[in-house]
Design a protein around this nucleic acid. Structure first.
Lengths: 268, 268
DNA sequence: ATCGTGCGATAACTTAGGTTTACTTTGCCG
DNA sequence: CGGCAAAGTAAACCTAAGTTATCGCACGAT
């Protein structure tokens, strides 16, 4: 049970670039601390609170959201098992969103101070976390692109494709059918549309034989046509290292301090 | 001239948290390399190209954008003098957007490999870059929130507030009047609306005495009411360090290697 | 059994904003 | 100076999606 979550994280990264055993071990040590059970609806943090830790989602789904004065809400990010929450406020002071569990789950918290140690000790693994943060950024960017000019149908299709792809990468045992634990209201808040229209949209998608949703079960009927309508290109999700920043390079650099910057530091 | 750009960057960060002289010096050394003159419309990189460097925008405006098959376009980020482009693909392999100059300007490029050296030599300054990347992420998140549920007027108002605030932070000599070098089509692509509607929206805003736009000159007539209608809260733009990740801490940790992780590393 | 509650579906009506087309205004360049 | 292209404005029309309201269903609690 405990190891599964780390496995998810490692597996996902490893799918694209083989990690060295050392790095895996370091990640496991870093994240495999006391886990806490949390239940659906439970808040992980609130807007305005001091941001001083990462949350590692070992099992369950979560999301980050902004609440407006008028009672409406915008879901910003969806977190799946194996994801890390809070990477976007590292180094900045306070939370700018709420974070809420969508399902029951298990989490562990990692204070930023440990992270700082990591920065010092292993630029290797630090670059890895940077990559994960970069992937989150890519998701935000892609969401914005999709939200701006695409129709409700396309947005919905894209969202489903994204969730499905991300789930598959954690090695979940789902192929064309999986659990999407969001109510239509949640989906509406995530996709920037009304709950009623989410309902309509799913009806249309079902009519066209693309996806079928019942309760929280989601069945993808025609994956190819769905991806086509969503103009879904999964490249933005792929964690593929830049050679300049690759683990191998970082590792080497870690062992043999570079010349260029050393010169600068000496001067100061 | 050359120093101005660095000044912009440093000033903006320094406005919120005093930098140590050492860090400033390191930043200056790092970014103050051969500058290249670029002209409006010039491409800095294209989607799909290998991402192997940061671009430091010393003078001029730029943007990142995604082009769609149907010819339409989505502007993702706007970059002002003193901004760093490409932070969101560090550690990932290829560009997922185009980057284009909006005006003439001066830029310098910084290969990721130098960055890696920085990671090794000064976690201090690395954390600082992380913070700048975090700020970009916050901008993306905020844009998404605004785009999802807010009207064209509110979106436009928010965009203006954001640009104005960011400009002020670079210490630009603009108070309520400044140059916004985007055509109505550019604004439309950034805000996810049609150019015609941008025109309509600016007419309305002018009628209500909020802002006035002529050519690329933008005059804010009633800043308070504008911010109110945009529900603009500039906190997401502020680079305020988390104490856990503060420069002082990082610096200290840099001098005295920490114990916790050292133990882990010894084991491996 | 029966309530209450939350989720989802459907229909009727309204509206913000897209699309199209046509007409200005501005700047540029020979 | 004339002519051309790019940018902006205006009006007419249309459609996607919001809003409101009602209804059905599943479920848990009483």
């Amino acid at each position: 049970m405990r190891q599964d979550g780390i496995c998810n994280m490692v597996k996902r990264i490893d799918a694209h670039r083989t990690l060295e055993r050392k790095d895996i071990a370091l990640l496991e040590k870093l994240f495999d601390r006391e886990f806490r059970q949390v239940s659906a609806g439970e808040s992980l943090w609130r807007e305005g609170e001091n941001a001083d830790s990462l949350v590692f989602l070992q099992a369950g789904w979560a999301c980050s959201a902004r609440y407006h004065k008028d009672g409406s809400r915008q879901l910003l990010e969806i977190f799946l098992p194996g994801d890390v929450l809070g990477l976007c406020r590292i180094a900045l002071s306070d939370r700018r969103t709420d974070a809420v569990m969508l399902t029951d789950g298990w989490i562990s918290e990692l204070p930023y101070s440990s992270l700082l140690e990591l920065f010092n000790e292993s630029p290797n693994t630090a670059a890895l976390l940077f990559a994960i943060a970069n992937q989150r950024m890519a998701m935000l960017a892609e969401r914005q692109i999709i939200m701006a000019h695409r129709s409700a149908r396309e947005r919905t299709a894209h969202f489903i494709c994204e969730c499905h792809t991300r789930l598959l990468e954690t090695g979940a045992t789902c192929r064309e059918e999986f659990l999407l634990p969001l109510t239509q209201q949640d989906l509406a808040d995530a996709l920037g549309m009304s709950a009623v229209h989410v309902s309509r949209t799913f009806s249309h998608l079902a009519q066209e034989g693309l996806v079928y949703r019942n309760q929280f079960q989601l069945v993808i009927l025609d994956s190819d046509r769905l991806k086509e309508m969503a103009a879904f290109d999964d490249r933005y999700l792929r964690i593929v290292w830049n050679d300049e920043m690759s683990l191998a390079n970082a590792d080497q650099a870690f062992r043999e301090p570079p010349q260029a910057l050393q010169g600068l530091l000496d001067e100061l």
